[in-house]
Nucleic acid binder design. Structure first.
Lengths: 217, 217
DNA sequence: CCAAAAGTGTTGCTACTACACCCATGG
DNA sequence: CCATGGGTGTAGTAGCAACACTTTTGG
């Protein structure tokens, strides 16, 4: 028969799968644990705090006050153990960090970026959570404008294509990509060009509605 | 500043959006509350119970030991109130009840079926949870074989089409439907026919892998 | 003038939509 | 023989994948 009343403590927390893209590679941030394996950043939820707010609080502890997309992913738990370890419930979120120069102070605060294809050993099956988040993100590329959440205010189409390639893990055809993305009517060409090296400068674009993630048909 | 330690009690429970199809209409089960509005069935999670197991336990309290598909949907919460009401966390699941004759004892156990288009007033935004579940289910029709989870062991293509129409809320072309669904290679025609009225009998099919929900390309 | 990335169209194919008639049965 | 739902094929279209060369700049 199932024990319904709490004998032991219940810990409710959030874990955040923060994705970033660096050198055309999709990465997630992980924190070390004292005993070796790594874990997702996150922490407890206050009693008078909304779930989303708690996740956002822990996210901003990582990246400061920069804007970031945040979405609930799934919830997992660990049963109370006979050793007195309490019931644990974690509501996992995933977040997208805008593609800026990586701040030097980031890694100094006790966490590191890892490529999603080369995760270290993790506790609590956090690597499975990362994989779930990655699959969800990749699927969303196909039917939403979520990739724009990685972009800074002004960006080139090649940069956006690089985001798709990093997430999907393979090359994308340039002409087909530009056709598709321009047909979405979510980008606005600017008059400005990005000069960046010994080659033809690229036109800059901006998202028409940068705060909305839109769904297709 | 956020209060991180629990001063008040924390209730962790699951709510189950159980979908059924009756008379070609998609319905969900709701329980009455003492004060009038209706709510999703569900209840507390034991400290030594897995989340999925708790949802399944509450599901089987509704439909007995029949097999049913169950999937985690989302998690929502209510902050602790100043009135001493504790923090509440609910992990919502959705479930699909195989399309059988409606058992008479069902409704007598204190719950009722409601069409998804005609929900009564609900507590805790449970109607929004039902809508989220409905959208997820409708989306999954497009890229998975989830609809088969509604079907009994042997069924006709027309019955399956009826499931699609009930979920999508509109008519579906018969010939296109049959082409698509047969091309999935997930159905096996039986030698048996269903004689049911003064018209030509329909061929019966069964799912090749009834316990798997498969994803397309 | 060379290297490097930006930018641009067409063609074939596949997959989806729309659509109407005959078939088998029970009464 | 009539009513009822079961069962079948085609033609047009829209969207996707494959594919190569010219342009502009910095060095």
């Amino acid at each position: 028969v199932t024990r319904l009343q709490s004998r032991t403590s219940v810990v409710v927390c959030t874990d955040v799968v923060l994705f970033g893209i660096h050198q055309d590679r999709l990465e997630v941030s992980l924190r070390p644990t004292p005993d070796g394996p790594w874990r997702l950043p996150g922490g407890p939820i206050g009693d008078d705090e909304d779930l989303d707010a708690a996740a956002r609080r822990h996210l901003h502890a990582l990246i400061g006050e920069r804007r970031a997309y945040l979405e609930q992913l799934c919830t997992f738990g660990r049963r109370a153990g006979e050793d007195g370890a309490g019931r644990m419930i974690s509501i996992a979120y995933f977040a997208l960090a805008p593609l800026e120069e990586r701040a030097e102070e980031d890694e100094s605060q006790g966490w590191r970026w890892f490529g999603v294809e080369a995760l270290p050993e993790t506790t609590c099956d956090h690597d499975a959570v990362v994989n779930t988040a990655h699959r969800r993100l990749a699927a969303k590329l196909g039917y939403s404008t979520i990739a724009l959440q990685f972009m800074p205010e002004r960006f080139t189409l090649s940069a956006l294509q690089g985001v798709y390639e990093a997430i999907l893990g393979g090359p994308v055809d340039k002409r087909n990509f530009r056709k598709r993305v321009l047909a979405l009517d979510c980008l606005e060409p600017l008059d400005e060009l990005a000069r960046s090296g010994n080659h033809r400068p690229a036109r800059l674009y901006r998202a028409k509605r940068p705060d909305r993630v839109e769904f297709l048909t």
